[in-house]
Design a binder for these strands. Structure first.
Length: 249
DNA sequence: AAACGTATCAACCGCTGGGGT
DNA sequence: TACCCCAGCGGTTGATACGTT
């Protein structure tokens, strides 16, 4: 018996999300939390499948997302982690608070791979290219065998956490004065504003000032949402995200 | 200014594993 | 045990931005 499709797709919208859809999804999740992604679009009034909503939330709407280009230090860590975990992007992303697996995967495929090739390294094996060509090719699909040592893995985790936190703590943000005109209840909004913390000062400007890929002429519902959508560098600490979990639970 | 090629990244697709019945 | 449902994952695609000629 075959699997049911995740959604019947008939009448469901696909493609880039509009500001209004973002607004609806954000509003719904912040007010109700997430119990079942399949129900989210129905309850939020969206013509999307649950999967699409989930992806949009995880990759773009989550308030804890760290925007802006990956730093050299982050790149180095990605390379290090990739040599250990292979293409297990979610595992790698778990070491980068505020970064998504999709973002890291894209960055790997578009930049780091090239960088390694320029350095004469095979991006799959992380070995010098000549050496790899003489060797076996069992990792050709990117399924590099990670070390199975949990102890080693934990040590690496500690090391990386130290590195990443030292980088982001310099960016303490001023409290953001946002108000909601799109239906957030006051207590949630207050908590969200607290944990939001505000935007970075622009010292690390993202190349894409319109990260959603949305049309620039789209009507923006609120200054709150607009600032957040347009802000290329909003950065939130995980402490703040923990607070969000409290709101949801 | 236009045409073309390349880079980037948001979003989709299909599969897998886990939990529930 | 078999089946179903769901969330999550990784690979891939397509639209758009950007650079070059």
């Amino acid at each position: 018996m075959g699997r049911q499709p995740c959604c019947d797709k008939i009448g469901l919208k696909r493609g880039p999300w509009t500001i209004e859809e973002d607004h609806k999804l954000m509003n719904f999740i912040l007010n109700n939390g997430i119990q079942c992604w399949r129900l989210v679009p129905k309850l939020a009034g969206l013509l999307r499948c649950g999967k699409s909503c989930r992806l949009r939330w995880i990759n773009y709407l989550r308030p804890d997302l760290k925007r802006g280009a990956l730093t050299e230090a982050e790149e180095d860590m990605i390379i290090q982690l990739h040599s250990r975990f292979g293409n297990r992007w979610s595992k790698i992303a778990s070491h980068f608070p505020g970064r998504t697996d999709n973002e890291i995967k894209n960055h790997w495929n578009t930049r780091i791979k090239k960088k390694l090739k320029l350095l004469g390294l095979d991006p799959i094996t992380h070995k010098p290219i000549e050496q790899h060509e003489n060797g076996d090719t069992k990792d050709e699909l990117g399924m590099l065998q990670p070390s199975s040592s949990g102890e080693q893995e934990n040590n690496l985790d500690l090391d990386l956490q130290t590195k990443t936190s030292s980088g982001s703590k310099d960016h303490q943000m001023s409290h953001r004065e946002g108000t909601s005109s799109f239906g957030l209840n006051e207590s949630n909004l207050s908590n969200i504003n607290q944990m939001w913390g505000g935007f970075e000062d622009g010292s690390e400007v993202a190349p894409d000032a319109n990260p959603s890929g949305l049309g620039m002429d789209a009507a923006l519902p609120t200054d709150f949402l607009q600032d957040w959508v347009d802000g290329p560098n909003n950065l939130l600490s995980w402490d703040g995200f923990n607070n969000l979990e409290e709101i949801f639970l």
